[in-house]
Simulated scan of single mutants.
Amino acid sequence: MYRRNRMSGRVRKLLIGAAAATLAGGAFAVSTGMSSAGENCAGLDGALRNNLDFIAGQRAAPDALSDARIANRQAVVDLINQRRAAAGCTGGGPAAPPAKGATKPPTKPPTKAPTKAPAQPAPAPAGGDVVCKGSTVTLSGEGGAPAASSGTFPIGTTLKVTNLDNNKSITVKVATPSGSCVLLNNAAFEQVREAGKFLIRRAVIERVG
């Protein structure tokens, strides 16, 4: 119970920070550096559908971290809907998943993650064209081999994403459109995220091809 409460507090802090950043900069929480090219309803609808599908999957087959993942994705869904409204997107978009707890079986208490020494922040990598400065990065919810989606760069563009909080980087190609500068699919995000976190707050995004 203590672990769950602490995790809920951490999720609330993430959501509050994301909302504050949105109000201050007028930008989308998962990509505060999104250009006007990303303001397209098809991309926003695609990102919304991916996140709703991810939430539905977590509710259908929950594990110890499902509550945190769902809370993070729901915050992203809310911000996408705000962006759709601001862009004048018509229609209701993809249907929302069933309400939390409707058919969800009880989850197992979370196991305590092993502690590790904090990683030293990495300097901004050199060699690429740094784009979308100040952007945060999260998941698109898509499966398959490591790849990215973007509403700023065309399909086939090669992007390098570096997580400055743990010095991990990955180079991926844009495979699908979205309503953000860059979203990583599940396989790509897993290679650069910190354990238990579903948002990269300090990211460097480079266009390398």
Rank of each mutant, 00 (worst) to 15 (best):
V161F: 03
A175Q: 12
K133H: 11
V174R: 03
I16W: 09
S169R: 09
P97L: 02
M34T: 13
P106F: 10
D67N: 08
C132M: 11
A75W: 01
P118W: 02
A18N: 15
K173S: 12
E39D: 15
T90C: 05
S178G: 02
G141F: 07
A195S: 11
Y2M: 10
V30S: 13
E39F: 13
G9E: 11
T171L: 05
I70P: 00
P154Q: 05
A37T: 10
A195F: 09
T176D: 10
A37H: 11
D78L: 10
Y2W: 10
S178Q: 03
N72Q: 15
A126Y: 11
V77L: 06
C181I: 05
N185G: 04
D45S: 07
V30L: 09
Q191R: 14
A61W: 10
A47S: 15
A68L: 07
N167D: 09
A96D: 13
R69V: 15
A75K: 09
A147I: 05
R202A: 10
T22Y: 09
A61H: 15
A99S: 09
A95V: 10
G33M: 00
K108M: 12
G143W: 00
R10Y: 11
G101P: 01
A95F: 06
A21Y: 09
L65C: 07
L164C: 03
A188K: 02
G101Q: 03
N186T: 14
Y2Q: 14
A86R: 06
A117L: 10
N167K: 14
A20F: 11
R193P: 05
A20Q: 14
I155Q: 13
N51T: 13
G43W: 09
K116P: 03
G93T: 02
F54A: 11
R83D: 02
P105H: 08
F28L: 15
D45F: 07
S36C: 06
T157R: 00
A27K: 09
F54W: 14
P110W: 05
L79I: 13
A95W: 05
I55C: 03
S135Q: 01
L44S: 01
A148K: 04
V182L: 07
A64N: 05
I155C: 01
K108V: 06
C89P: 04
N163E: 00
C132F: 02
P98F: 07
T22H: 15
S178H: 04
S8K: 14
S66Y: 04
D45C: 04
P123E: 08
P109H: 01
P121A: 05
R4P: 00
A60E: 11
G101M: 07
A29Y: 07
A29G: 12
A60K: 12
G92Y: 09
F189V: 00
N5D: 13
P98Q: 06
Q120H: 08
C41Q: 07
G101A: 04
G151I: 01
R49K: 15
N81K: 14
P177L: 09
